[in-house]
Nucleic acid binder design. Structure first.
Lengths: 113, 113
DNA sequence: CCGCATCCTAAAGGATACTG
DNA sequence: CAGTATCCTTTAGGATGCGG
């Protein structure tokens, strides 16, 4: 009789389960969003990313990039030339995070400094 | 002569500086977004939050809430009764993060599991 | 140029017991 | 109930040097 007793364990009310926690867990650390952001629009080389993300260490950058690659958000293309050349770009799945980054940016523009 | 030489240090092209980095720094850790999310819609008591954010330790919860309060995102109201009662709610500034959380949720629903 | 290996630090967060 | 206090574990991330 519709007595589903307010399972307040669920934060999101709605038909589908809330994915916020899962999503944050999926890509939620300091650099991840920034890397995705840096790749919005055009592909970039390792060195460029290192430059754009001022101060990120190569170790961390590699780590994050590999992680994002595994998850199908970033595509890595290797050019077998000397000196080595590798380009990173977003997959469609990655591009779709733009909405969210825009929202974040909009909020920041309105409320920060 | 319009020779502003592609200051590719800036990731965001646009009139205003990009606020993504600043915003993430402002509220970027694991629990912050989840707490804000939990407060969307209605005010909640400490215990409720602890329950909704399964497994968060009281220390961490207090820490995060105080931090969000300082930043004007969360409002804390104390009822001088026994036993103690404290309610947390979002300020308008906090509510405006809904757009971003929705985008995050939408992405998750589409791409996760 | 790309990026791995190694070592190291800082900071977030967890567990638990206790107080007003 | 709403925290505070204490201690401890984990992990993100930095620095740097070497290798393909």
């Amino acid at each position: 009789m519709n007595d589903k007793p307010s399972k307040s364990k669920e934060i999101c009310s709605g038909d589908k389960p809330c994915k916020i926690e899962a999503t944050l867990k999926f890509l939620g650390n300091k650099w991840t969003f920034l890397i995705i952001h840096a790749l919005m629009g055009d592909r970039k080389r390792f060195k460029e990313l290192q430059y754009l993300l001022k101060g990120i260490s190569p170790k961390t950058l590699t780590e994050r990039l590999r992680n994002l690659e595994e998850k199908g958000i970033v595509h890595r293309e290797i050019f077998p030339v000397i000196p080595p050349k590798v380009e990173y770009s977003l997959t469609p799945k990655g591009e779709e995070l733009k909405t969210m980054l825009d929202a974040l940016n909009a909020w920041g523009k309105k409320h920060l400094d």
